[in-house]
Structure formats: structure tokens, C-alpha cells
Amino acid sequence: MTLSLALPYPVYLDHIRIESRRFREVLATCDPDARVPACPDWTAADLLWHLAGVQWFWARTVRTRPAPPSESALEPERPATYDGLLAAFDEHSASLVAELEAAGPDAEAWHWAPVQTVGTSYRRQAHEALVHRLDAEQTARCVTPLDPALAADGVLELLDVMYGGDAPPWGRFDASGHAVRVDLVDRDASIWVRPGTLLGTDPETGTKHDGPHLQVVDDPGTDPSAVVAGTAADLDAWLWNRRDVTGVTVSGDPAAYDAFRAAVSQPLD
């Protein structure tokens, strides 16, 4: 597994600042009613409020750590005007950075992901801001490049956390016989995954799972069943369904690629 793609925590924090600033800059002059290409039910105003809400939620979660979020907590009311939305975003974004910086990455904190530390939010919120910055730029038709190092870690996070990971205690992962190698051609790095199926029922929600899943694995020392290759930025945007397959190449067993694609085709906002 290519763990060297992870970034130092202060770099994640810098990226939250940088990507959030660019997100705000782009949307400040965008038509509030412009549609977001990757989320066509959203307008630019909806996108602005979405990231404001996400950053508010995680600022509060870090502030009240290590307790899980309270279902009774009052969420902020959506402002009625676009200027109000911009002001709310400024407030919640600044609060997120301040809470993360004050807590430090090693502090215990609730997270839906397996690693229950503030550092998980450092990483997750850097990628959240990056992806929605791309959404903002696509909405305003002024796309700029993604940072290659952050995008490379974004590919790893997508495969290892967002679309995959270890099976929870109540479930089991049935791996297929396929080993797929994902090559980040501009970073001289590869991530190996095994697609398969996650089976089980979540006892807390009663939700039954019987669908595609994958796990990041060590290099098995054998030839891959299929290879998916591209730059880190192209792969990150494609896996987030923010870009088509242009710039990504696929080779090898079509069945292996189909199993991989099934696992990474779940919708993400």
C-alpha cells in the first residue's frame, strides 16, 4: 500500500485555507443561480451553503470532542441573501481552521471514518475543500489545476476510505480474484486494490449491505489483472465524478476493470 502519499498535517491545514479561499473567490462573482455541473440539482448558492454547512459541522465536532455530534444541536439557519451566504461561509470556514489548529491532529475526536482523531478531519476537510473548489470553478467555467500532491493523497483516500476500507465488525468483505493497480504517472506511485463485495447488516441502522466494495492492499508481487493510469489530478477528479475518463487509460482484463468501476461509481457530493 502506498502510504507515502499522505501529507504532513500542517500541509493539510494550509490546503483547507487555500482551497476554501479559492472556492469563495470564485463564487463571490458567480451567478447565484448557475447550475453545478457535477451536482445539477444544486445552484452556486446551494454549493456555497453546502461547504459552509460542512465546515460548520466539523468545526463544532472538533470543538465538542470527543463526544459524537448531538442530534439535538441547532444547525445554523441558511441566510436569505447571497451576500449573507458569503458572510456565513467566511465565519464557518475561519472557525474550522481555528478549531483544527487549536486541537492539533493527535487529539481524540469523533469521526465517521475508522481513525477517531482530529487529524482525520485535517485530511478529509482538505479534500472536501479541494473537490468543492473544483465544483465552484466548473460552475463559473474558470477551472485551474489541482495540486498534484494533494490530488495523489486524494486518490488514496478515495480508494482506502470513501469507496473502500476494512469491513466493519458486523460485515465481511468477499474479495474477487482481481488485483487492480492504479498508477499515478506524475507521482511515480501506484496503489493496489482488490475489488469485491461487502456483505452484512448494520445493527445500528438495520441497513443491509450487499454491494461492490474494495480494499487497498500491498503489492502482491504478481502481474495486475488490470491497470488504471493517469495523473493524480485526472484520477482524483475522475474518481470524484467531476471529470470524464479523458486522460485516464485502462488496460488488462475488462472484468477486473468492471469490478473496480462498480466499487468507485457510488455517488459522492
Rank of each mutant, 00 (worst) to 15 (best):
T201C: 12
A149Q: 13
R187V: 06
L48I: 06
G230F: 09
R17K: 12
G221P: 01
E77M: 13
D46V: 10
A140D: 07
P145F: 11
R78D: 03
M162F: 15
A52I: 03
L47G: 03
G247R: 08
D174Y: 02
L100W: 07
A149Y: 14
G252A: 12
V185I: 15
V245C: 02
V143S: 13
T29C: 09
R181P: 01
F173N: 06
T29M: 02
A179S: 13
E19C: 06
H178G: 02
V54Q: 10
A73D: 15
M162V: 03
A259R: 09
N241C: 08
D90L: 04
H15Y: 15
Y12V: 00
V115H: 10
A73G: 03
A129W: 01
T205M: 08
Y257I: 01
S265I: 10
I18P: 00
D90A: 15
Q215I: 04
P114T: 10
L3A: 14
A45L: 10
V264A: 01
R17M: 05
R60W: 14
V227E: 12
L130M: 15
R17Y: 00
A87D: 11
L158G: 10
L85K: 08
Y9L: 08
Y12G: 06
D269Y: 09
D219G: 02
W56I: 04
T120A: 11
T81P: 00
L158H: 12
A103R: 10
G230L: 07
L27C: 09
R17W: 01
R172D: 11
A152T: 06
S225M: 04
R123T: 05
S72D: 14
V26I: 12
D46L: 09
A129M: 06
V143P: 01
T207M: 12
P32N: 12
R261Y: 14
E128A: 08
L3I: 04
A44F: 10
G119N: 05
S4V: 06
